[in-house]
């Protein structure tokens, strides 16, 4: 501690200095930044080809695509006479920085961890990226009308899962260094920053207080019990009648992580890949015999919400929804996950 009024864990950067910082990070790290593609912003390998977009809240596409790429090569195969050579992809040694992830996406990483790291054997590719990950998050100063992270136990300033949290003020960014990994990623660039002073930290606190939620978090255990008791509720049929089965809700969801595995190539050589799949598609569970345990729309709609609010909780995993609202924005049938939560938990926990 040298100066009393400043923090050595909170640094400020003039807004105009951000592009240079990102360029410097990209020179040594695998850096992903949110940039617009069409109307929707997604995380892409950093480059000058498209502008940075830190405004779209939340970005149309989530951080899931970085940790769980679609598609992903599991190995390549090459036939040599009768034998076959199998080669898994080479790991990347660099730090993996995701810049500008929101609270909802950062929290979703814990749910992805439960799936990819919580089984008897961790998923090697996910683990490899996860060990390199430095999540540089961005507090949301203008949440969208569809955001309901408060109800899902979080909030725009929630920093869980982040290594660094950035708070944008008028013409500066305040970087809060939250973990050793966050410090290690930014330490080489320390001279570009100033230590945040007391006034700045007060401004951050005031911004945060202005965004504290009026809505309390749901009680996930009570929600689970209620959903579980409504296995046969005709409500699921009403929802299913509207659902088009397009699966956009699952693809945009930062938590949904179901996948399929297939071979691309021919008998001589090719790749085995996994790609995003969805419980909303009939083929997801259709067996070779034709039997399909979730052959009708209500069964599939139910699976999606049961997985999020019942199975995850029952298995001691994080809830399957973080309140980002992407499915609310993009569902062409207007299915609103917030209504489902409210229906089964009208009197939210106080």
């Amino acid at each position: 501690m040298t100066r009393t009024n400043t923090s050595d864990r909170s640094w400020t950067l003039p807004a105009g200095a951000l592009p240079d910082l990102l360029a410097a990070l990209a020179a040594t790290c695998e850096l992903w930044t949110p940039r617009p593609v069409g109307g929707g912003t997604r995380f892409l390998p950093h480059g000058e080809d498209r502008p940075l977009d830190l405004a779209q809240t939340p970005p149309a596409h989530s951080v899931k695509a970085v940790l769980f790429p679609n598609p992903e090569t599991l190995f390549t195969y090459r036939r040599n006479g009768n034998d076959v050579a199998l080669t898994p992809p080479e790991p990347d040694g660099r730090s993996l920085i995701v810049f500008g992830a929101r609270a909802c996406d950062a929290r979703a990483v814990a749910a992805l961890d439960a799936v990819f790291l919580g089984r008897s054997i961790p998923d090697p590719a996910y683990l490899e990226r996860r060990e390199r990950l430095c999540l540089v998050g961005l507090a949301c100063v203008s949440p969208a009308a569809t955001c309901f992270c408060h109800r899902m136990g979080s909030g725009p300033f929630d920093a869980s899962g982040m290594d660094v949290q950035i708070v944008p003020l008028d013409d500066i960014y305040v970087f809060h260094l939250l973990t050793k990994r966050g410090e290690a990623c930014l330490a080489p660039f320390r001279d570009r920053f100033e230590a945040a002073d007391g006034d700045t930290l007060k401004k951050v606190a005031a911004t945060k207080a202005g965004l504290e939620g009026a809505e309390p978090s749901v009680d996930f255990t009570a929600l689970k019990d209620a959903v579980k008791q409504h296995r046969d509720d005709p409500y699921w049929e009403t929802l299913a009648a509207a659902c088009l089965g397009c699966g956009i809700c699952t693809f945009l969801c930062p938590v949904c992580s179901c996948f399929s595995i297939t071979d691309t190539g021919n008998r001589r050589g090719g790749r085995r890949v996994r790609y995003w799949d969805a419980c909303m598609f009939p083929a997801f569970t259709k067996e070779a015999s034709g039997h399909n345990p979730r052959g009708d729309e209500p069964a599939r709609v139910k699976q999606r919400f049961f997985h999020k609010f019942y199975y995850s909780i029952e298995n001691g995993e994080p809830p399957g929804c973080v309140g980002c609202g992407r499915c609310v924005i993009h569902c062409p049938a207007g299915i609103d996950i917030r209504e489902i939560v409210s229906r089964f938990q009208p009197e939210a926990a106080s």
Binding site: V115, F116, F259, S260, R274, D277, C279
Partner: peptide
């Protein structure tokens, strides 16, 4: 039990019976 499977280790999400997976 038999269910359509891909991963076989409780990750790909398709073979569940309620909260349990047939594979794992």
């Amino acid at each position: 039990m038999e269910r359509k499977m891909k991963c076989g280790v409780g990750m790909c999400g398709r073979c569940n019976l309620g909260p349990r997976f047939v594979c794992k």
